[in-house]
Design a protein around this nucleic acid. Sequence first.
DNA 1: GACTTGTATCGATTGTTGTCAATACAAGGT
DNA 2: ACCTTGTATTGACAACAATCGATACAAGTC
Lengths: 121, 121
Amino acid sequence: MSNQGAEAAACCDVAQSALTEDAAVEMAAAFKALGDPVRLRLLSMIATAQAEQGVCVCELTPAFALSQPTISHHLKQLRQAGLIACERRGTWVYYWVMPGAIERLTAVLAGTVGEPAPVSV
Amino acid sequence: MSNQGAEAAACCDVAQSALTEDAAVEMAAAFKALGDPVRLRLLSMIATAQAEQGVCVCELTPAFALSQPTISHHLKQLRQAGLIACERRGTWVYYWVMPGAIERLTAVLAGTVGEPAPVSV
DNA sequence: GACTTGTATCGATTGTTGTCAATACAAGGT
DNA sequence: ACCTTGTATTGACAACAATCGATACAAGTC
């Protein structure tokens, strides 16, 4: 059953109209960052309390039964996924949600179920 | 710096208005399923080609440079995450996207950045 | 400058995940 | 009944990820 792919590609290749491999790699990295309960809660907390100036790490850490290095590690993951950003203000570090990051994810999900692929913007 | 959480909770606990831990665990499992390029493409292909009757596995497998067991394994992950469902028709197995599954994810993302939590529906 | 507090990084460990080859199961054709 | 083809499961292994304690760095206070 090895290359019956040729056959399938001949008539109607399902792969063409869906996500490209590159786009999938990029978006999967973002979804993977959300694929952990701690990170999902962190993002939610940051987004919810994002009054104006961002949320201090010192408010996030005590909400979990995890060590401080672990929380710091998860924040780094979210940062590297492009979902949040941070800035040091004096002793404290403040985090906020990257504008547009969430929208990009929902766009992919919407495109996944609806239109061909709104990957462009 | 151990329980300065008490202090934070006293005035304005960030954790209250965000996702609950249980909700986070549940949703993170779904996002985790999307956190792999292969699975994201599979879902996209299934959703895109979801003309009427679902997509045959034999159309999905040849689109990847992976073994058949590996694709089958990823399909199982998506199934267990409640994102897709399948049915056997004679020799072939057809997959389709679970209605409402994508919408539930986008709702969480929207809630994460916007309103308190539209998790209800 | 020494001390304290908040945050990040390092190194190690343990659990999880992606992948494959081998095999089993399901269904149709001979 | 046997063979062929499509799909799922099993078992193994290498790669990765989540967690921690220890430590380093940054900035403020004495």
